[in-house]
Design a protein around this nucleic acid. Sequence first.
RNA 1: GGGCGGUUACCCAAGUGGCCAACGGGGACUGACUGUAAAUCAGUUGGCAUACGCCUUCGGAGGUUCGAAUCCUUCACCGCCCA
Length: 395
Amino acid sequence: MQGTEYGDEEVKKVMRTELHDRLVQAEKENRPLRIYCGYDPTKADLHLGHTVTMRKLQQFQEFGHEVTFLIGDYTALIGDPSDKDVTRPILKEEEIRANANTYAEQAFRILDPKKTIIRYNSEWLSKLNFAEIIRLTQNFTVQQFLSREKFKLRWERGDAVYLHETLYAVMQGYDAYSLKADVQVGGTDQFFNIVTAARKVMTALGAQPNIAICLSILPGTDGVEKMSKSLGNHVPINTTPEDMYGKMMSIPDNCMPVYFRLVTRWTPEKVAEMEKAMQAGSLHPRDAKMALASEVTEAFYGEEKAKAAEQDFVVKFQQKSIPDEMDEFVLTPGQKCLDVLVDAGMVKSRTDGRNMITQNAVKLNEELVTDWNAELSEGVLQVGKRKFVRLVKAK
RNA sequence: GGGCGGUUACCCAAGUGGCCAACGGGGACUGACUGUAAAUCAGUUGGCAUACGCCUUCGGAGGUUCGAAUCCUUCACCGCCCA
């Protein structure tokens, strides 16, 4: 149950008991538990935040349970109103399909492809007829939806709450029913969808309600907002080991504990131990964060590449020396420093380049460049802390 | 359908004829300090120009004026109220 959060101790207790009972029941029936988590293919790239639930799925997988990775191609037609306080733009079907394709591939960096069942919810949702939908919605009152925080907020502000948005939770409930799910994994923002909607739909249709595993929301690299690409505080999955390691090092100290629980493979004992050591002062927060960055990077890229990424980080940022690999830029005779900065894409404009130079941000071979008309020789040109380019002469 | 209010740079937001490339805040970037943490201090944040200055920008188009983000006309979008 590491990293779970229900906002209510009672609910947590109930879920814990139910999970225990269900395990016993499944054992008797000589079958594994059926676990699932749904992902709406609304973006092309996944980030670390998405992997929180995948990691939980993976843990179940390790214990031999049956895991379904559900791609919400049909729910993506609506877009989950849970995590937004504004109406979502509606995606085109082609976009959804394109995104869906990249999802599974990225998910398999965590989940075992051989043990994972991939399903699309259009499979059953597209077959429902109007009468069936009416019967499903009879289980809910408008008040239930209006009392949800996100809808309530919009209601009070006088913003639109569209009728179709209420169907999202109903659809998710029908997913759980169709999959005969024992357990549904999701973020705390899924609490309503899982606990209220899915369990109700399942019960109404005569099935055993599924058990919710709600996980805390992973904050972004700013340490405050929920990780999301649009806020620019995300750690993408499709990136380089160096970038991933570096991004991990930029998270604030105070959100390390959340990261420990949500994105590492560490046991609760190990986490407790590290936190204790940090408090006692025997573990430097920086070293703890490096361990965290290594662990996360290793989970995606393997031990060897993670070690290399760490080395790269130490060299580049802690010792502030110049990295081995960087892009090359071929000098043209007569080209001034400012031209090089602009042409090599190191600065966004000549004005910006001038500012950088006057702010002592430009170095050639570790020597400050103060004249933007200087003609540069071969070597390594650096702007700010992390932009490097190797200047070479034309052959 | 009628009345009123709004649309300013990445975001929020001030500006209601010249002193406006446009106050302030947030964010971002750079430097100092450091652990690519936090906090703090200093600077930059339309483009071109090593300066003087010039050019483009305040929802779109047109107009008034020596001069417009600011006034007028019109179009588009958004919000509030009445029907």
